[in-house]
Design a binder for these strands. Structure first.
Lengths: 335, 335
DNA sequence: CCGCATCAGTAAACCGTTTCAGTGAACCGC
DNA sequence: GCGGTTCACTGAAACGGTTTACTGATGCGG
């Protein structure tokens, strides 16, 4: 039941030190003041328990210290891990993350991006569902944008952590092809159809090159929905001998379906994922998947956005290369 | 390359309508003004593309529209799901969540709680690692606090979503006892030792009642760390016939350990979890676990915090009851 | 027709910083 | 010893809303 005592303001610190509020503001930021004054001000601030009011500071300075994080779909466990890690990394740099989730809906993605800009975030990290949307250039003009995964079209983003999805697809399909599979069903999460859409471009190109027959099926990003779709595909006639899932979370749904259908993995159907979520190694059989070095991605994205915000010029574009983790779900390794 | 055009301010809307800024402020909030004026103001605001500046609003009104969410450890997958769901629910109520992660460290928890208060969040949802810390009462005096899980001591929280952990422990231990186990190792995540600590109180009480021998082992909340501890416990002499993990994530580590050690679940060791994360049903064997109805928890917590912020009196305390999902990992069901 | 509310709206203060445009004083080279 | 910088600091103006105190007009009961 402590009384709600008012916090000290910069004016009180100014009064206590006999300086002007402006001088206190400068001193606490270590600029435009003598060492001695800074020391004196710090002492008085500590004494009074003064801490700058972040809202007032944001209004005056135009910087909120908050970064928007716009995720394609947080139903996806890997994206959850990514979001958590980014939030943590931002906090370590004294920034707060505003995490929002488009739920796989490109329109919602754009609406949320607008909302974040209207909240005056200092920067935006986005995993674009629709990299080609015209809105991105408008947004990038108002706030620094860093993209993760697919690059925004036209290079509007101030920073990019690009996934070499072409390489990822190649790794997966070559692996399946090398194991003798002729027909592969590809499960890909909902996305806006764009020229870069991996499932449309890379998959078809790579399949053609390898002489592989592929069927692309769009799957909502949730365990339940993925399970349902997988039940239909694997339970129906003309079951493929292998499936390639464009997210480990989708592969988890496939596992649920194979269990329900009594199919053996990889005996009846081989499964390959994408992301390498930690749980993937724990499944039975462990999931073969394309690994993306989440730490490096997080580090690059946060560094890019913070540097752009702070006005430091820095490499704008980082390309990430995947690697294949071969495990038992494709029969490519002992189980 | 659209130019960074300045946004309209309330003064411009006032000018356009021939009203005072105050009147515009009132009109847009639908108070103290005639219907007709409100309509006229709305039209002008739309015309100018005016949208209130959230920072300025926050400074003047003292409300930021942001709610802090302080998680015990986001290494835990269930807590990740909880955080995501709470963030989504808050957004649906036009609030942003500031999600931070104590990483299992009670001191860090308190430091972060302070930081969130200093950020001027309107409210705080917390999954307390240390419900007994004196700081809570100081915090609760400054900002509405809603606890999830263990209740804060002394009833300082303005809202509580309480987990009946005693019941959860009873369900798990009775189940294992009923299957004939005599010795159970309990893996519990790091927490401050408090009078309410479930592992200390409920487990011991229940074990005594059932005539069960239990060993409590504290485990850091991460898959890797849990695996390591489990390897030591299950690989050493005197292996228990059953383990009870106070979080499904820990059970995942146990699964990894049993795999490495070549132990059969539940044949060599039965495993029971706590949380019922969706992945738990997908493991081989599916994990028996204590289920907590995450949707209800999220709904209650968000409703409590929002109502307190909005000054609506509401039931302060909600108690959640768990149920046991019996699956094959304890041999209690066909696998 | 008086006294008292109520209503719709206004002017100004306020929220607590940062930043801009000075201003003396000290210091510099010459 | 003089013009020009640099240094350390000040006063006031932002930043863009909300809130408080007040005002004139209208309505209403008696």
């Amino acid at each position: 039941m402590s009384e709600k005592r008012k916090r000290a303001t910069i004016r009180e610190v100014a009064q206590a030190t006999g300086l002007s509020p402006a001088a206190v503001s400068y001193a606490l930021r270590g600029i435009q003041t003598s060492e001695e004054t800074q020391e004196r001000v710090r002492a008085a601030a500590d004494e009074l328990g003064y801490e700058a009011h972040p809202i007032a500071r944001a209004l005056a300075s135009g910087r909120t210290g908050q970064v928007g994080l716009l995720c394609g779909s947080l139903e996806d466990y890997w994206q959850q891990s990514l979001a958590v890690a980014i939030g943590r990394a931002l906090l370590a740099r004294d920034r707060y993350a505003l995490i929002v989730d488009a739920g796989g809906d490109p329109e919602r993605e754009l609406a949320l991006a607008r909302r974040l800009r209207d909240q005056r975030v200092d920067g935006l990290i986005v995993q674009p569902l629709d990299p080609s949307a015209a809105l991105w250039s408008e947004l990038a003009a108002a706030v620094p944008v860093v993209s993760i995964g697919d690059a925004l079209h036209g290079g509007q983003a101030q920073g990019e952590v690009v996934f070499d999805n072409r390489r990822g697809v190649t790794l997966a399909l070559e692996h399946l092809h090398g194991l003798g599979h002729q027909r592969v069903t590809v499960f890909t999460p909902t996305r806006a159809s764009t020229p870069d859409r991996p499932a449309d471009v890379h998959v078809n190109a790579e399949a053609e090159r390898l002489g592989l027959r592929v069927d692309v099926v769009v799957v909502p990003q949730s365990l339940g929905a993925a399970t349902e779709v997988a039940l239909r595909v694997l339970g129906g006639p003309g079951r493929p001998s292998a499936v390639f899932c464009f997210a480990d979370s989708i592969a988890y749904g496939v596992y649920a379906a194979t269990r329900e259908l009594g199919l053996a993995v990889p005996g009846d159907v081989a499964v390959c994922g994408y992301d390498n979520h930690p749980m993937s190694a724990l499944l039975t059989p462990p999931l073969t998947t394309v690994d993306w070095d989440i730490d490096g991605i997080v580090h690059s994205a946060v560094r890019l956005v913070v540097d752009v915000i702070d006005g430091k010029p820095r490499k704008r574009r980082v390309v990430r290369e995947p690697s294949l983790r071969v495990r038992a779900s494709t029969g490519g390794a002992p189980g």
